[in-house]
Amino acid sequence: MRRRVINKGDTQLGVTWAWGSRTIGTALLLLGSLHAGASAVQDASDNKSCLRCHQMATLAYRDPTSGEIVDLSVDPNALSHSTHGELACSDCHAADYEQYPHPDRLKDEALACVGCHEEQDDAQERRYRFETIDKEFKHSVHVTSDAPEAADFGCHSCHDPHAFRNSEVGEDIAQIVRDDNAICMSCHEELNDPYRDPHLWLPKREKHREAVRCLDCHTPVSESGQPVSHQILAGEDSNRDCVQCHSKAPQLLNRLYQYRSETDLANKGWLSKAVFNEAYVVGMSRSPLIDRAALAIIAITLLGLGAHGYGRYRAYRRSKEDQT
């Protein structure tokens, strides 16, 4: 289960990850006093030392400037299953954390996703190139918007580095959709309000919410070869055209159907996939041209057959009359 970080200062993509507070807070002070003078992080690879404190769900402090609660807790279970699960805390948090309470200057610790990910040996082979993500993200509505809620928006606003992992082919589609949409919904609370939800125009709203990710409509079809663009679109720029998914538009349909098919196959095996095919999207086989032409030809054929039958009937009556 993904969880959104509520660290207010989590701006990313090369921007400083600031702890945002002048002091690390009373909670830490209290904890720190228990360990004063001890060198807690003896073994950098041993996350237990860090998690001993940070696994506490309530580890947080209130930012004196903004008044917001800055969550410092890390769920060890989520961390170990996350995409960063095999890393040591110190692989990212390289700075000096041995002192308790952690020194003030650490709040300015800079953590950049793009730099680290692009430096890796396998960066070229990855499905997602972080440079591309960076470019797309810069055009995202979360960056371009002037709305105060979008200020300081960064990678970690959606991707909790301590819990995030990519969905994988083979997982339950409904679960992937739920998890993915939960990220959006954690900020966009208006979507849960039937009077403010901007999707009122959308037929079968609940069905859509269960079946497709917000991203499926709110991102342009990526031409970078990456599965989903990070250029999140504003509502007015997003796809509102039903036929983009429910009919032709090969790209959007392809993206949606192929992904669901892959997942379906991996989940259930080929026979079950063949029988239940969860991937089918209503209307994906529809073509107004073929439908109209075919229905017209069928109607004409039926009329022709009817006329033919009538002609035969008259011939039959004639032969009967001739016999009598």
Binding site: K248, S287, D291
Partner: peptide
């Protein structure tokens, strides 16, 4: 997918 869908339909 579109090619397949249209062939099947036709």
């Amino acid at each position: 997918v579109w090619v397949v869908a249209m062939s099947h339909l036709t």
